[in-house]
Amino acid sequence: MSQDMLTTQLATDPARTREPLVFGGLTEAEGWALAPITPRDRVHFRTDRELPLTDFRAALPAEVEVTYDEGDGLYRVDGETGTAESLAGLIRAWCAAGGYATVGLRPETGVRRRAPRDLPAAFLDGLCRHYCRVSLKRLQRNMSTIRLHLPDNDDVDQQVAEWVLKAVSQYDETKSVPFGAFLATQLSKWVHDLGRNAYGRTAADTENKQQKAVAAFTAEHQRRPSEKELAAYMGQSVATLRRNSQTVATLNGLRNLQSLDGGADTVEFVVPDSAEVPDEIMGEAEQSLLSHALTAACAPDPTARRDQRAAQPNVLGWATWYLTTWGGQTKTQLSADLGTSVRNMNVHADRAEKALKERLTELGG
């Protein structure tokens, strides 16, 4: 059969022709046409604490749109093309006047987006319901990773719904790619972003690159690479590889907090007699007790169900408490280093604080 005949048969074969999906009485193509994706300028930034959004919006031009990603702690200010730099200047000035520190403020031009609310409500509702079900099925292969960060079923459903809406805002119907195919390519990237948000962007990306390089070298040579070989394979110096390996080792150690948790009632602490030792030694002993209590407070709760958040190690809470208490870093600095928001850090730190208070009560009792 010639290529032309095969093409004609595929085009006319009723078994291969799929009817367009209809949501709210509109086909997908008709729905996208009612709210086409448009170019705009955007300013991204985070802050050391939440902004009063009503006051912030009032300080910006009327045609500007402000959105806030609560989970990521990321503010987005969208304006007309050509206004990115002027918007960035306004934002810097307003935040400085109010005493808000900005983190990673970046103007971006030519961003193509749509506001999901511009789509007909019935169309958007039907589309989201359909693609949330499709996404949950597709993500079954990634569910073990997702469960590390979202142990509750309701949290998983909510996150998938947010991802579908995010895809709706980014989908460019002019590129002749079906929305379902576009969503599928984005989902795997967004699953990886869960780890970046929880463990820090730099650490998670470093670990991912090293794992890929080791896997590629092993497949090519049928053995694991030496340190020197891995450095050459990744185009790095041995010193850089060692530094990055330490970052990865630290990340893996934080993930395995459960193995460090002996519990306050099962560990014997040898505390010197305060009458016979200098004050600084007693201070070090107290810091050791606090450090262990913090680690224990952030470890998984063995009595919790596997689908509960308490059953997972609170890595970000541990890092926030430890590095701001003993590491000499501010939350703003740590937020920039880890690539996550101060708000996200505070949520995890509050969980750690609640458990830590219970541990300190046990130690003092």
Rank of each mutant, 00 (worst) to 15 (best):
W32F: 07
S288E: 10
E108I: 13
N256W: 08
Y131F: 15
R196V: 02
R112C: 12
K357A: 13
E362H: 00
D4R: 08
R106M: 13
A198N: 05
R242P: 00
H149M: 06
G328F: 12
G200Q: 02
D279K: 09
E220M: 06
P14Y: 12
F217Y: 14
A275Y: 14
A319R: 09
D154G: 11
S169P: 00
L360T: 05
T303Y: 01
L60W: 01
R40V: 05
T17I: 13
Q329G: 08
K331A: 04
T295A: 02
R117D: 14
G235E: 06
V214P: 10
T54E: 15
V43K: 00
M345K: 03
I281V: 12
R57I: 12
W318M: 09
A58K: 15
T185N: 13
P178Q: 07
V315Q: 01
A121E: 13
R92E: 15
G98E: 06
L34R: 14
L6V: 13
G339V: 01
E229T: 10
V164K: 05
A213H: 15
T12M: 05
S86Y: 12
A239D: 12
P39Q: 00
T340W: 11
P14T: 14
T250M: 15
L323G: 02
F182P: 09
A349F: 01
T145D: 09
L105V: 12
P61E: 10
R46N: 08
T47K: 00
L124M: 09
T174I: 03
R243Q: 05
Q246I: 14
P151H: 04
E85R: 13
E286I: 08
K354F: 15
D4A: 11
W94V: 07
S188P: 00
E207W: 12
L124G: 07
D78Y: 01
D125G: 13
L290Q: 12
R92C: 13
H149E: 05
T185C: 10
D152A: 09
E28S: 02
H192T: 12
H192G: 10
K331Q: 11
V168M: 02
L90Y: 03
R138A: 14
A184H: 03
R112Y: 12
V77W: 02
L363P: 06
V168E: 01
L136A: 08
L10K: 07
G253D: 07
A275H: 15
E80W: 02
R57Y: 12
G328Q: 12
A216R: 06
K212R: 14
T324K: 10
V43E: 00
L127R: 14
T266M: 11
T250Y: 13
L21P: 05
A299S: 09
V64R: 01
D48Y: 10
T7Y: 15
N314S: 01
G82W: 01
R46Y: 07
K137H: 04
G339P: 02
R255T: 03
L363E: 08
V164H: 07
P52R: 03
